[in-house]
C-alpha cells in the first residue's frame, strides 16, 4: 500500500513543478506588461526605477481611446445579441432531432469557428462587398456575429441535451403549443447556457483583431488601435490601454466561469 504511494510520489512532485512552471509562463508576461504601464519613462524596458500613474490618467483623458473603448463594447454587445438568437435557434433545430442532412447542417454550423483567422477575415471581407456592406461598424458586427454563432450552438446544445423530455411532454399534454412550451420550459432551462455563451461571445468579439482589422473602416476597435500604436513604437501608454482591457476581460471571464458553474450546479 505504501509502496504504491511511494511509486507515484516522484512523478507527482515532478509534474507539479511542470504545472507551476507553466503557470509562470502564462502569468509572467502579463504581469510584466502591467508593471510596465506604471513606468515613469517613455522607454519600454527593464529595469524600472521610478513609478507613475500618469499613463492611466492620460488614457482616460484621451478622447480617442475612450471612444474606441465604447465603440468596441458596442460592437461586442450587438454582435452577441445576434449570435445568441441565431445560435439558440440552430441548437433547438439540431439537438435531439433526426432529419435528412443533419450531419451536413451541423458541419456547416461549426465551419466559421474552424476556418483559420486570416482566411475567415478575407472571406468576410469579400462577402461584405458582395452583399454591399461598407467596411465599418456594421461589417464588424456582422462578421463577429457569424463567427461566434458556432460557440453559442455548442454550449446551448450541451445544455439542451440534459433537459428532461418529460417536462416538454407534460407541457404539451396540458395543452401548451410548441411556441409557449419553448418560451416557458425550454428557454428558462437554457438561461445558464445562454449567459455563459453571451459572455464568451462578448469577450471573443471584444478581443478579436483579425476580423475587426480587415472589416473596419477608419474608426479602430481597441485591439486594432493597440496594433496600430504598436507598429509606430512601444510606449507605456499602450501598456496602460492593454492593462485596462486585460483587467476587464479577465474579471468578466472569471466571474462568468464561476457564475455559470454555480447555476449549472443549482438546477
Amino acid at each position: 500500500m505504501n509502496d504504491r504511494v511511494e511509486l507515484f510520489r516522484g512523478n507527482r512532485i515532478f509534474l507539479a513543478c511542470i504545472y507551476w512552471a507553466f503557470v509562470l509562463y502564462v502569468f509572467v508576461p502579463l504581469i510584466l506588461m502591467v508593471l510596465m504601464g506604471f513606468k515613469e519613462s517613455n522607454f519600454i524596458g527593464f529595469p524600472i526605477t521610478s513609478w507613475t500613474l500618469d499613463w492611466y490618467t492620460g488614457i482616460f483623458a484621451d478622447a480617442e481611446v475612450v471612444s474606441t473603448f465604447a465603440y468596441s463594447v458596442a460592437i461586442a454587445v450587438l454582435s452577441t445579441l445576434i449570435s445568441v438568437i441565431v445560435g439558440i435557434w440552430i441548437a433547438v433545430l439540431l439537438e435531439g432531432r433526426k432529419f435528412w442532412g443533419r450531419t451536413a447542417m451541423f458541419g456547416m454550423t461549426l465551419l466559421p469557428a474552424l476556418v483559420p483567422g486570416i482566411i475567415s477575415a478575407i472571406a468576410f471581407r469579400i462577402y461584405a462587398r458582395f452583399l454591399g456592406i461598407e467596411p465599418g461598424m456594421g461589417a464588424i458586427v456582422w462578421a463577429h456575429a457569424v463567427h461566434n454563432v458556432p460557440f453559442v450552438v455548442l454550449v446551448v446544445m450541451a445544455r439542451l441535451s440534459t433537459l428532461p423530455k418529460s417536462q416538454i411532454e407534460a407541457a404539451r399534454d396540458l395543452g401548451a403549443d410548441p411556441m409557449i412550451t419553448f418560451l416557458r420550459i425550454t428557454l428558462p432551462y437554457l438561461v445558464p447556457a445562454i449567459l455563459g455563451a453571451s459572455i464568451f461571445c462578448l469577450l471573443l468579439s471584444f478581443d478579436d483583431f483579425v476580423r475587426s482589422f480587415f472589416l473596419g473602416g477608419y474608426e479602430p476597435t481597441l485591439p486594432v488601435l493597440i496594433f496600430a500604436k504598436l507598429r509606430s513604437g512601444m510606449s507605456p501608454e499602450i501598456n496602460a490601454i492593454a492593462t485596462v482591457a486585460l483587467v476587464l476581460t479577465a474579471v468578466i471571464g472569471v466571474w462568468a466561469e464561476r457564475f455559470t458553474r454555480r447555476m449549472n450546479k443549482d438546477s
Partner: peptide, 22 residues
C-alpha cells in the same frame, strides 16, 4: 484549471504585446 484560464481570457494582441516586452 481556473487559474490557468485567467490569462487566456485576455486578447490576442495584448498577449502578443506581453511577449514583446518579455
Amino acid at each position: 484549471l481556473l487559474l490557468l484560464l485567467i490569462p487566456f481570457w485576455v486578447g490576442e494582441i495584448v498577449r502578443t504585446y506581453a511577449i514583446m516586452i518579455l
